[in-house]
């Protein structure tokens, strides 16, 4: 604070204006206003609008037409809806546990004191760095294609290859594999959590004669459970919204075997311009994700251990 400004502040009589709502109210709202405005404009209002649109027929050309629950009823008999739902649930069922387990494994590998760990960390994190970009989609499509690298390796060992991406039985699993290879921020959050477990706990466990396996189950897992919970909730939610890889690598095919829910919704909205139906689909997605998240929160009471509660795990 420069001198003149400071003087002005002192010169002002104190208690000039005493507000009943606290003197930090106005600055508080000024500081959070960027988020608040964005929230109202780009989140709150669109949510309401989306709910309204889900009860209408709307192509963006003419005004929305109220059609009641017709959009929701339409889903019941829409085979594509059920197909995309099944594909998405299969994806989530495999992708979430695999990604969590692999991330935790990698985080534990990287959490050891070892020479050259920075280099290992960089190399192992590298695939995640490329992200869900078009670039990696191109890489994947080529590697798992009929003439791709995977097949030529298999051919070298005399195993007949196949079009991993062009075959409906395997296409989804190449996407699951991609999702695991790019563990990304899930691992970083595990690593941060591991670094905060006090080493005394491990020392105490050693004194009590615990081996590495017991240490993992009795120290690492309970201490890491809040982080595990955080990762579980977000990974489930994100997996339901999987889009880019399915859109670029497989385009939902072959025979809709990778037709993820988000892809279905996108095509309804921005290819067929059925904004009303797409909004209804979005609300069904929200309901599914909401129910699963609620279950996660309820279940967390039984396995998430919070240190500062003082009590033990129940």
């Amino acid at each position: 604070m420069n001198a003149p400004a400071a003087e002005t502040m002192r010169a002002l009589p104190k208690k000039k204006w005493k507000s009943p709502i606290g003197k930090e109210t106005l600055p508080g709202y000024i500081f959070i206003s960027p988020w608040l405005i964005g929230f109202l404009l780009l989140t709150a209002w669109p949510i309401g609008q989306s709910l309204y649109l889900s009860f209408t027929e709307y192509s963006m050309l003419s005004a929305p037409q109220w059609i009641g629950t017709a959009n929701y009823e339409r889903m019941w008999s829409d085979a594509t809806f059920w197909k995309s739902l099944r594909v998405t649930f299969t994806f989530v069922l495999f992708a979430v546990p695999l990604r969590l387990a692999f991330s935790l494994l990698v985080a534990m590998l990287l959490n050891r004191a070892m020479r050259g760990m920075n280099l290992y960390r960089t190399l192992i994190y590298f695939p995640s760095l490329i992200g869900g970009s078009v670039a990696v989609a191109a890489l994947w499509r080529n590697m798992f294609g009929v003439d791709g690298y995977i097949n030529s390796i298999l051919g070298f060992f005399g195993i007949p290859g196949m079009g991993w991406i062009s075959h409906p039985d395997t296409a989804l699993y190449t996407l699951i594999l991609l999702n695991t290879w790019q563990f990304g921020s899930t691992m970083v959050i595990f690593l941060a959590g591991l670094k905060q477990i006090p080493t005394e706990l491990y020392e105490a466990a050693s004194v009590d004669g615990a081996g590495p396996v017991r240490k993992f189950f009795n120290v690492t897992l309970p201490m890491l459970s809040p982080v595990m919970f955080f990762n579980l909730v977000l990974t489930v939610i994100n997996s339901f919204q999987m889009f880019t890889a399915a859109f670029i690598i497989t385009k939902g095919g072959p025979v809709q075997s990778t037709y993820m829910y988000a892809l279905f919704l996108y095509e309804k909205a921005f290819k067929h311009y059925q904004m009303g139906y797409a909004s209804a689909l979005a609300w069904v997605l929200l309901a599914i994700v909401g129910i699963l998240t609620a279950i996660n929160f309820l279940a967390s009471k039984y396995w998430v251990f919070y240190e500062n509660e003082g009590g033990g795990k129940r």
Binding site: L234, I237, L286
Partner: peptide, 22 residues
């Protein structure tokens, strides 16, 4: 409320957002 938006699937807001920008 802000933390809740972390869990909100983007699909719910994308259609009205697009209409708004349009």
């Amino acid at each position: 409320l802000m933390m809740l938006t972390l869990m909100l699937p983007g699909q719910v807001t994308i259609v009205p957002q697009y209409i708004l920008y349009n």
